[in-house]
Structure formats: C-alpha cells, structure tokens
Write a protein that binds this DNA or RNA. Structure first.
Length: 387
RNA sequence: GUGAGUGUAGCUCAAUUGGCAGAGCAUUGGACUGUGGUUCCAAUGGUUGGGGGUUCAAGUCCCCUCACUCACCCCA
C-alpha cells in the first residue's frame, strides 16, 4: 500500500454512490424547473496554495461579480466541500453539498419560498422525519442594541458558564446559544432573545415570512436560540433537522445575508440561500430511498471466438436501447461465463455458440427462474422490453 | 485540538486466570467436459494494525505509534 486515503475522506461506489447521484440529478431537475441555473465553482480558492472551499456561497457571489451577471439571479451548485474538523458521524472532511442562492430579492415572500422549495425537494427524494426551525436575528441596527442587552444579562453569570462559552463570549458572541452544557442552557433559557428585540422593519419582515410559510403550508417551529456566527447574516435563519441522526443532525441550513455583498466589497445586494448535506440526509433514510432507476441487465455469453462479431452488434443494440449490457470473453468456459453473470446479478443471459448459429436463434436464459428458451434475433428487443 | 471506545483470514466475528490462532461467509478446485445460482466433498487463506517492554510463554498485561468509530470543538 503506497498511501491511504486522507482522514475523513471516502471512496464512494456501488449503492452509496448511486443514490447520491440520484439525489443530485433530482436536484438538477427540480431546481432548474424552479428557475435556478447551475453553477460549477472551482474547488480551489487560492492561487498558490491548495486552499479548498468550505462552502459555496462566497464562490457563487464571486462568480456573479466576476462574470458580470445580472439581477435577479438564481443559482444552483452541487459538489464537494471541505472542512478541517475531525470526522464523526455525518461529518466528513470532504463532503457533498447541494445549495441554492437567490440574489437581489429582499421581499419576505422569497424567504418563505426557498424554505418551501427545500421542503418540497426533500419530499420528492422521499425524506421524512425532518423538522424545520426558523428564527430572525435582525439587522445590524437591532442586533448591536440586542448584544448590549444580552451582555449585561450574561455578565453576572460569566463564572458559571463553561470555558467554551467564555471563549465564545469574546469570539463568536451569539453562538453561546449552541452550547451543549445543561448548566449553560439553564442560564440562556432565561436570557433576553434577539427575536424579542427586533426593530420595526425586521419584526414586520419576520411576520411576513411566517405568514407566507402559512400560505405555503410549511410547518415550522420557532427556535429563538437558532443563530449564526457570522455578522453578514440578517433576519431570517432556518435549519432542517433530521431525526435519527447523531450529534450532526442538520441536513439543510440557510437564511438571508443581505450584508455579505458589502462585506465582499460590492454594492448592496440582498441575498438568500441554503445548503444541504445529502450524505447526512441519506444516512437517515432506508437503503431503497430514493428510488433508483431499475434497468434490465443482460450478460452476453459467447461460445467461440468466431461469434464475437455477431454479439458485439447485439451488445451495441442493447446499450442503445438503454439496457445494461456486459459481454464475456469467448475464451472463458460457459460455466465461467454463467458464474460471472450470476455474480453480476444480471436479469438475463444471452448464449450464442455453434448450436444457436446453426439454428439462427439466440438462447436466452432468465437468471431468476433458470428458464431458458430460443428466440429469433428480431424478437430480442421486444422480449426484453416487456420483461 | 480534547476525551472515550475499537483494531484477529477478503468480510462478520470467536479464542477461559497469559498456555497449540479458530468458525461462518467469500474465494479456488472437484462431484458436473454447452449451463450460473441451490447441495455435497476438499483446499487456499494470518508477522492478531505497527514498534518496543514484562514473562518459560503475549491476540490477551504495560508503554509508544498508526488507523477507524462516537462525542466535544467547529459549523459559512
């Protein structure tokens, strides 16, 4: 072994890859029909060193500016993202993400719409047992006023909260609400919440978002402790959480970030979006969801090299007609060929050798029942299609 | 970065207070020379993750290291 795969990465193949790709193609179909255009963004975000993208939003913005695209714009991106944390259940260092970004829309209608689209998408895939949490974290105006209120509430408790929270207090203020310590949570339960300290505009925006969620018939639960660590988030934040997962149970997270564009040095453009971790979601689903396309598979057993050419034509016809088709090397014994066919779990085997050539027929064997009969070449496609 | 748990055949796992490294499945061959899967018989398969130590003797006990898993942390 020359080298092993880096920690937190995986080789995807077989069923696992198949269902991930199925989710991706459903996403493409669904969101393109909803007016989104796909954007393929580079994994590398630095000229000299290989710095890998941790999320898609900033890159989508960069692409928007660099390509001088016009507003309003809806983008879909699908691909690998990277994080450096130690892996655990539902958290890999290289992981898949499906995300959408909606640029240039400030109406609360759209906050509700992207939540509804996420929900419909999950339903199409066959996900269930998830719930939606929403909150509003206001704008810089109400948030800075609120931060002072929260700070003065927390001051007397500084020695009671855990060391992690003390660190968060200085670095990532609102994130203290995410703490898993019970003693900390007891203190935060009685803390003033940002949702109750919104300015008039933010309050109205939030009320409209909830109104539209009602019109869209999307059930959601308000979680006043749901926050974001970064300052460019404004107003609406939401998460979809999946039951039956471990500590990492958020399958979709998103919100509104009207200040991001300014932070990146651009003009003032509002933006909404979310990102989904399909692998994490699939962890909680039964193996047969989403439903895979079930194609009939055929193995062509050839007995004698001089029949290869005839069977190559059959193979090409089958592939053109969307069957899965594998051909055997004529040097292998018929026993080996059938054994291979069995291992590949194919539905049918076409056998062709001296006997069949003389009669001008194909022998076709149903691998489930073991039945075998002769069929004239012209009827092959018809026979396979009705099966 | 921190903590806990697990590493034995290709896979899933056994192995008593330290006492001959095993089973099932898989693989290969045969029974069966143009018929897989089922059945029967046989064979192959291991520096017990790696290194060091204690001991007459280590899969088992001690130390180090690597990998995986879960949790903390982080979460744009």
């Amino acid at each position: 072994m020359i080298y092993q795969k880096p920690k937190g990465t995986r080789d995807l193949f077989g069923f696992e890859l198949e269902r991930l790709e199925t989710v991706n193609s459903i996403a493409r179909r669904f969101f393109k029909k909803s007016g989104y255009q796909e954007l393929k963004i580079p994994w590398v975000i630095d000229k000299r060193v290989y710095v890998l993208i941790p999320e898609g939003t900033a890159s989508v913005w960069r692409a928007f500016i660099e390509n001088k695209l016009s507003l309003p714009a809806r983008f879909l991106y699908i691909g690998s993202m990277f994080r450096k944390e130690r892996p655990q259940k539902g958290r890999y260092r290289e992981f898949e993400q499906i995300g959408i970004e909606l640029l240039g829309e400030s109406q609360p209608f759209y906050d509700a719409e992207i939540i509804e689209q996420a929900k419909r998408f999950l339903e199409i895939i066959g996900a269930y047992d998830f719930f939606i949490e929403i909150n509003s974290i206001g704008c810089p105006k109400c948030r800075s006023a609120y931060k002072n209120i929260l700070k003065s509430y927390l001051k007397p408790h500084m020695n009671t909260i855990c060391t992690d929270c003390q660190r968060r207090f200085g670095k990532n203020f609102l994130r203290i609400f995410d703490c898993k310590e019970e003693t900390c949570q007891k203190i935060y339960d009685r803390a003033p919440m940002i949702t109750d300290h919104l300015c008039l505009e933010c309050r109205e925006h939030y009320a409209h978002v909830k109104k539209y969620l009602g019109i869209f018939k999307v059930d959601s639960k308000e979680n006043k402790k749901l926050v974001r660590g970064l300052d460019y988030y404004t107003r609406t934040v939401f998460e979809f959480k999946q039951k039956g997962l471990g500590a990492q149970d958020t399958i979709i997270a998103g919100g509104r970030y009207d200040l991001l564009m300014k932070e990146l040095g651009g003009s003032d453009i509002p933006c909404l979006g979310w990102a989904m971790g399909p692998e994490r979601m699939l962890l909680a689903l039964p193996q047969d969801v989403p439903q895979l396309e079930d194609r009939t598979s055929i193995y062509i057993a050839v007995i004698g090299e001089r029949y290869v050419e005839t069977m190559l034509k059959v193979r090409d016809t089958l592939v053109k007609n969307d069957f899965i088709c594998v051909m055997a090397a004529p040097e292998d014994s018929i026993k080996d060929q059938l054994r291979q066919a069995n291992r590949l779990k194919v539905d049918y085997v076409i056998l062709y050798g001296e006997d069949e050539a003389e009669k001008g027929m194909y022998a076709i064997k149903d691998m489930k029942t073991g039945e075998q009969h002769s069929i004239v070449p012209d009827q092959l496609l018809q026979f396979l299609k009705k099966s």
